[in-house]
Design a protein around this nucleic acid. Structure first.
Length: 391
DNA sequence: GAAGCGTGGCG
DNA sequence: TCGCCAAGCTT
């Protein structure tokens, strides 16, 4: 692989000309770099930038974050996914206050010891925020090195990662870890892209082993992909006396500590309406009936592709004037009856947030003869059947 | 080592 | 529509 021995100066030149203007690059404040790197885990930079601005405006320093409630932090993270990142970030901020005097440590090992900081993030913060000679090997770096240096091991598996990491360290120009690390990743994101590498415009083309061998489509070597399971889920918006029932999920597993409408998997032979009534009874003890179907929302997560059937529910055998009953919770740690305009305070999974936006929109639409969802209580006559559009 | 953990964009 | 993929970490 002698042909690539000298590509790093070209890479640094390219970066100097093509560096994106990302918010944390204005000052490289360590706290900002850290937040951006945690947000960037399994997330593309264009999305990170939007959340970053809002998050750091609300929590501008380690101290400000450390003093926050988890509820607020999750709300600021809402829609970004992988919510354990937010909970770990908060826990780490509190530890930085307690153990590091409120200043993020510059040392790789001390960074690596913080919750939510793995090999990548520790290297990225050490190099980018503090200029330490460390490497940050993310999916971009793996792909770039697999192509330029012709790594033939599956690049996401330990052997392939180890080869790439060794190469990345050997190629690191001492004292320039920040530019080098950012350049490798930026180059992977903008030029040496996953399925559409821009080889004709590539400044490293003359140094790329995969290009010389005409095997760019075969680099990196990919692992076998996992199956995606289709899943039908029913969820219910229970309305009583103008308030909506929501519950806070358990502290472990998917969407830990986020709020939601109760619901669950539609079993074989069940209709969505039957499933949501059954699930509601199991999770809250409430006896309900379906008043109307509100929406069908499609979304995916990890190994599932979910079709979410959303129903408007009413309590059976309870007058609207009666006070909201107390649930017996089996799938949640807490619950409450929220006024419609209070729902925006809580963090919901994306599918449920879409549902809220949809029926919130119908509330605000004045031209309709009757709102899609009538939250103004009473509820004697059911609303018109809405069109179950995808969201 | 493998699986769990979100979401949205794109070809 | 569908599969792939993203500046990964934890258990």
């Amino acid at each position: 692989m002698s042909e690539n021995a000298d590509f790093v100066p070209l890479l640094l030149d390219w970066f100097a000309q093509n560096r994106r203007d990302l918010p944390w690059r204005r000052t490289y404040d360590p706290y900002g770099v850290w937040v951006s790197e945690v947000m960037a885990q399994q997330t593309q930079m264009d999305r990170v930038a939007v959340y970053f601005e809002r998050f750091t405006a609300r929590f501008p320093t380690v101290a400000a974050l450390a003093e926050a409630d988890e509820t607020e932090v999750l709300k600021a993270w809402e829609g970004l996914g992988y919510y354990s990142r937010a909970r770990n970030l908060l826990a780490a901020a509190r530890r930085v206050m307690a153990e590091h005097g409120g200043r993020l440590p510059a040392d790789f090992a001390a960074l690596r010891a913080l919750p939510g900081v793995g090999e990548y993030t520790a290297g990225a913060v050490a190099a980018i925020a503090f200029g330490r000679d460390e490497v940050a090997v993310d999916a971009n770096v793996l792909r770039v090195l697999a192509r330029v240096c012709d790594i033939d091991a599956p690049i996401k598996e330990p052997a392939g990662k180890a080869q790439a990491t060794t190469l990345a360290r050997e190629l690191l120009p001492p004292g320039r870890a920040r530019d080098y690390g950012e350049a490798l990743m930026e180059f992977g994101a903008l030029v040496c892209r996953p399925r559409t590498p821009d080889c004709p415009a590539c400044p490293l083309a003359g140094h790329c082993a995969a290009r010389r061998l005409n095997i760019v489509p075969d680099r990196p070597v990919l692992s076998k992909s996992k199956d995606i399971t289709p899943l039908d889920v029913a969820t219910g918006v229970l309305v009583h006396a103008g308030r909506i029932f929501i519950q806070k999920r358990l502290p472990k597993g998917a969407w830990a500590n986020l709020w939601e409408f109760p619901g669950g998997r539609i079993e074989a032979g069940e209709t969505p309406e039957q499933a949501v009534v059954r699930e509601f009874a199991e999770e809250t003890g409430f006896a309900t009936r379906v008043e109307t179907k509100l929406a069908v929302i499609r979304h995916g997560y990890t190994t599932y592709r979910v079709t979410l059937h959303c129903c408007l529910l009413r309590l059976t055998d309870l007058p609207e004037a009666a006070p909201p009953p107390e649930p017996t919770l089996t799938a949640a740690q807490e619950s409450l009856w929220a006024a419609p305009d209070e729902l925006s305070r809580y963090a919901f999974p994306a599918g449920h947030r879409k549902l809220i936006e949809q029926f919130g929109e119908s509330l605000r639409r004045p031209g309709e003869a009757r709102p899609l969802l009538d939250l103004s209580a009473g509820g004697d006559d059911p609303p018109r059947t809405p069109s179950t559009g995808k969201v």
